[in-house]
Design a protein around this nucleic acid. Structure first.
Length: 286
RNA sequence: GCGUCGGUCGGAUAGUGGCUAUUCCAGGUGACUGUAAAUCACCCGCCUUCGGGCAUCGUUGGUUCGAGUCCAACCCGGCGCA
C-alpha cells in the first residue's frame, strides 16, 4: 500500500509554500499546487506564486498550466492532479499537495465525481441573460430533483445544473469514489491579528514587486476587465488598502470552507518548529 | 451677523403625512455538483422563549387620528454675502 499523501492547506499568507518545501526536502517529496489562480500563466505577483528560488530545487506541479483567457475548472484540476500523483509515486517520490483552494483539495482528497459534461459556452452565454426565477422554472422542468435542493438565486449553479440536465437528462447525485490514497491534511493557521499583519506585509510587497505592471500586462494581452475581476485581480483602483481588504475577506471565506472538514489537523503557523514537524507531520511517512 | 442648502445605521444614500425607513459599501455567520479570490443566502439599534417585543431619522416643542416628511425655536455643518 502507498504511504499517505500529505496535504498542506490553510488561509492565504500562512506560509504553506515554505512549509511544503521544507517537508519535501526532508522526505524527498514533490509538490502539487492546489490553487485555482496559480494554475494560470502570467498571474504571478498577484497570486503570491512561489518563485524559482523559493522552490529550492523541489519540483512543483500544476503551476502555469493554463491560459488566463480561458477558464480552468475543478474537474480539470482533479484529472491533472491525480495523474501527477501517480507519476510521482511511480518515480518513488512522495507527493505533497499544497494550496488554499478548498474545492480543489476536496475534489482530489474526497474523490468527488463530477458529471462528465464540459462547459457549453454558447448555452451559458444565452442563459446568463435570463433571470434566476426563469432559470429555476427551467430547471424544475428538466430535473425537479435537483431543483429541490439548489440555491434558487445562484445563477452560476442554476446554469450549470441546466447544462448538465440538458446533456444527461438529469443531474446525477453527488458521488464520491473512495480515493486509492490516504491523505493527511495539515492546516496551517494564524491568529487573526498575526494573519492580518502578514497579509498587509505581503500586499505591500506585491505592489513593490510590480503588481500594477502585471495587471497592465494582462490587460495588454487581451484579458478583459470582467475576466480580471473573476480572477480576483481587478479592483476599481488597485490600492494596497483595497487589496488588503479583499484578501482578508478571501481568507475568511477560505476558513469557512476548511472549518467543515474535521479531518484537518491544525498547526499554529507561528509556532511551528522542527520538533512539531517531526512528530506530527513526518511520523506517518516513516 | 444676514441669506441659503442640508443633518436618516460604522460610511454613503432613498424616502407624494399613512402600515414593515430604501439601496450600496464596510462588518458578521454560513452555503458550495466542471467559473470557487467565482457565485449565492441570512444577519447587521436593543431585548427575545425566534412567535415577536421595544426603540429610532440633530435637539426640544407644536400641528395632526397619524410626523423622517409640515410648522417654530435652538444646536451643528457646507455654500454665498457682508
Amino acid at each position: 500500500m502507498f504511504k499517505p499523501i500529505i496535504v498542506i492547506l490553510g488561509q492565504t499568507a500562512t506560509g504553506k509554500s515554505a512549509l511544503a518545501v521544507k517537508i519535501a526536502r526532508k522526505v524527498d517529496g514533490e509538490i502539487i499546487s492546489a490553487d485555482s489562480r496559480q494554475v494560470y500563466k502570467g498571474l504571478d505577483i498577484g497570486t503570491g506564486k512561489i518563485t524559482e528560488k523559493e522552490m529550492k530545487g523541489t519540483p512543483h506541479y500544476l503551476l502555469d498550466v493554463a491560459d488566463p483567457k480561458r477558464k480552468f475548472t475543478v474537474a480539470k484540476y482533479k484529472n491533472l492532479a491525480e495523474n501527477k500523483i501517480k507519476e510521482i509515486i511511480a518515480r518513488g517520490k512522495i507527493p505533497i499537495i499544497c494550496g488554499g483552494t478548498g474545492f480543489y483539495i476536496d475534489a482530489v482528497t474526497r474523490g468527488i465525481v463530477f458529471p462528465e459534461v464540459p462547459p457549453n459556452h454558447a448555452l451559458r452565454k444565452r442563459l446568463a441573460l435570463v433571470s434566476d426565477r426563469v432559470l429555476m422554472l427551467k430547471l424544475q422542468k428538466l430535473d425537479p430533483e435537483r431543483a429541490k435542493n439548489i440555491d434558487p438565486r445562484n445563477k452560476v449553479r442554476l446554469i450549470r445544473a441546466i447544462e448538465i440536465a440538458k446533456a444527461l437528462g438529469k443531474v446525477p447525485k453527488i458521488t464520491e469514489v473512495k480515493p486509492m490514497y490516504r491523505f493527511i491534511k495539515i492546516g496551517l493557521y494564524l491568529p487573526s491579528d498575526k494573519l492580518k499583519k502578514k497579509i498587509e506585509k505581503r500586499v505591500e510587497k506585491m505592489f513593490k514587486d510590480g503588481l500594477l505592471k502585471e495587471i497592465k500586462k494582462l490587460k495588454k494581452a487581451g484579458i478583459s476587465d470582467k475576466r480580471l475581476k473573476e480572477l480576483g485581480f481587478e479592483y476599481y483602483k488597485p490600492t494596497p488598502e483595497k487589496v488588503i481588504q479583499e484578501t482578508l475577506k478571501y481568507a475568511k471565506r477560505q476558513m469557512t470552507w476548511f472549518k467543515r472538514d474535521k479531518e484537518i489537523k491544525w498547526l499554529d503557523a507561528s509556532k511551528i518548529q522542527k520538533v512539531v514537524l517531526n512528530k506530527q507531520v513526518l511520523r506517518p511517512l516513516a
